[in-house]
Amino acid sequence: MSVRELSASPNMAAMFARAGAALIPGASRLPFVSGGAREIPDLTLALDDVAIDPDRLARYDRVCGFSLSDSVPATYPHILAFPLHLALMTNGSFPLPPIGLVHIANRITHHRRLRIGERLALRVWATGIEPHPRGRQFSIRTEARVADELVWEEASTNLRRGQGGGGGDAGPRGQHHRETGSLEPVATWALPGDLGRRYGSVSGDLNPIHLHPLGARPFGFRSAIAHGMWTKARCLAALAPGLPERFTLEVEFRKPILLPSTVEFLEAPRDGGIRFAVREAARGTPHLDGDWA
């Protein structure tokens, strides 16, 4: 496997420009625009000595509903690794252009509490393309280490709708959702229309689909949609007090949350862990199902 060591976090604006370029018909034949290749490249991106900026963490804590503390929420390293995710997907050798990908699942393994002041070494790579009932899926894997200790892992699964899917009749996702019918609502959250812009400015995920109805309409949504990782972080904030240090947090993103929205958070103990879900408050549209274990 080839490993590319980066000296600094990649420039997000340039990558979003490249990601946007991939939407132009025929542009994927250009060498610096993704969408040209057929297979996921055998490439790992590595970035060492990543600091946790207390001011950015404070803004993240606020927008996601965490209490400000010296501990780093388990969902936070995702936004540190996100520029690497984007760099990987906007690489000319990457087969699927990032804009238009649907984030369908995310699993985080939290080995121990991370604190402000610790420095992370991040490694990011993608797994091979697999068939999915509604298209093709692949996962981006991230590992975070402090010195040589593995402290955090993530598998973030994305779907490319249509285009040669449908072959796998028992896709790993999309067919058998978690049983969440028996969960009880424990909280109602009013999500403002500018939530995508607020989380976008903190996380750096400025995908237009999250920012404004005009950015979301080309992708078939009548208004901006909430970031899946915001929703996951908000769930963790609701669960967080009292959780032990080691856990896995696995969610499946169902229907996008069209902003603004009022949603319900549901939870119940399940097999020694906690099963939880987010649904639209009035109609019960499923947005997210998850397990804390």
Binding site: A58, R59, S67, L68, S69
Partner: peptide
Amino acid sequence: GPYANASNQDMLTATLD
């Protein structure tokens, strides 16, 4: 200073914990 962004609830929660 360093706690400019911290609310009363943030500081009290961290201290109780």
